[in-house]
Design a protein around this nucleic acid. Structure first.
Lengths: 229, 229
DNA sequence: CTCTGCTATTTGATTGATCAGTCAGGACTT
DNA sequence: AAGTCCTGACTGATCAATCAAATAGCAGAG
């Protein structure tokens, strides 16, 4: 948290801006946007509340800046994964595509050089929000890369319609959310044997589920129709 | 909203308690727990703010009461579905099981006699929350029926391990959340052709995806292992 | 049929706490 | 001296919760 070693010294100027963003990310992740106060964030960052307004203006702009920063980081990485997978006219496998979809978000949360999986929680809350401003954030930062993945799904699953590719994307994101939310519910429901902090295993499980789901959605009408009770 | 026909008459006493719960459900669904104020709820219910505290004590108790009421309603119905499917030692199909999992929540949101799909939004927020009290609400009202569904999955997919049945449940709920959140994102990503308000179609798509995912998780190690980039 | 007291319901007014945001000025750097 | 960074003190608004007092419905007594 204290980036420099010095105990009381806030004298290195530009560090505080980043410290505020990291502190705010933690507080927003824990308490949600409305549940977080500028006071709490200031205390977590060890600066005065006024400094938050000096650097970011308003609470909303502070939140937006965190969201923009992380989303750019994550989706840049996701885009580079896609570039690599489709380089030289290659066609990747579905599991490779699914891996590109989830790994960057997951790895941000587990890079020991970077900080906790706090943004994942913020993202989950934002993705399910009804607030127009929050929806707009998602649209602005995530719809572009979503379209790339949807198009990629159509290439990898030749039979699938565009509509079903959109559903496949939406549903897959829903599965990924359960991983990002990290509520510990899987451990509770399995008496401890399902550990949602073992990311590599979790990615394997998710990949199996999501790939199976997509294939089923792409290929099988028969499966779906039988579902009407 | 005004249950009696009379315009200014709040003269029928016991109705206000229910009116407050319905109004609070709407407000909580729209603005979230922390984003909602007792003032707003009182205004929405056309009663004084003090009456909310008279009937429910605190904001938290009001929320808990709504959650308890709806969860009991939904999970009672889900339990009855399970009873019917397994009556006389029968073994249902996987799509039937998935239908029992999602339909009660969805139909609560679309019964014209009842009110909007407001609770779905509350549920989505609660399911992804990190707050201990909210987690406890989920555990208290949803873990029991979850265990029943997990056991049912194991019966319908004989090869599946208990752990994978837990993952299957968790992931399926994640997919269902995308339906309950109703953010309109699918319409945006598909230029309007994917409508998340056509519930029967949506249930079919979800059933196809979830059943495929479960089958894949149950049967295939080979699918998963290939996923490591 | 009316008067009287009892309980449940409802409200306006108010409390102290907390909220996001402002501002004048201090301190450090160049 | 100019500019950036930073803070303590403050503002008005809004928050959940409280409370005394008003009202309605209903009981039994006369």
């Amino acid at each position: 948290m204290n980036v420099t070693g010095s105990p009381s010294a806030n004298r290195s100027a530009p560090d505080n801006r980043e410290a505020i963003m990291l502190a705010a990310e933690r507080v927003f992740a824990k308490d949600g946007y409305d549940g977080s106060s500028m006071r709490d964030i200031a205390k977590e960052a060890n600066v005065s509340q006024a400094l938050l307004h000096y650097h970011f203006g308003t609470k909303e702009k502070l939140f937006d800046e965190i969201f923009r920063f992380r989303a750019t980081e994550i989706n840049g990485e996701r885009g580079r994964h896609l570039d690599r997978l489709f380089a030289d006219g290659a066609t990747p496998s579905l599991p490779q595509l699914v891996d590109a979809l989830f790994r960057p978000t997951v790895e941000l949360g587990h890079d020991p050089d970077r900080f906790g999986n706090f943004f994942s929680r913020i993202l989950v809350a934002a993705a399910n929000s009804d607030d127009p401003h929050t929806k707009n954030l998602i649209a602005q930062h995530y719809d572009g890369i979503a379209q790339r993945f949807i198009a990629a799904f159509q290439k990898v699953l030749p039979g699938i319609s565009h509509e079903d590719a959109v559903w496949a994307y939406i549903f897959s994101i829903g599965v990924g959310m359960t991983m990002m939310a990290r509520t510990g519910r899987s451990a509770r429901l399995s008496n401890g044997s399902c550990d949602d902090s073992n990311v590599e295993l979790l990615l394997q499980k998710i990949s199996a589920f999501v790939c199976g789901g997509m294939n089923s959605l792409a290929g099988a009408v028969e499966n779906a129709v039988a579902s009407s009770r």
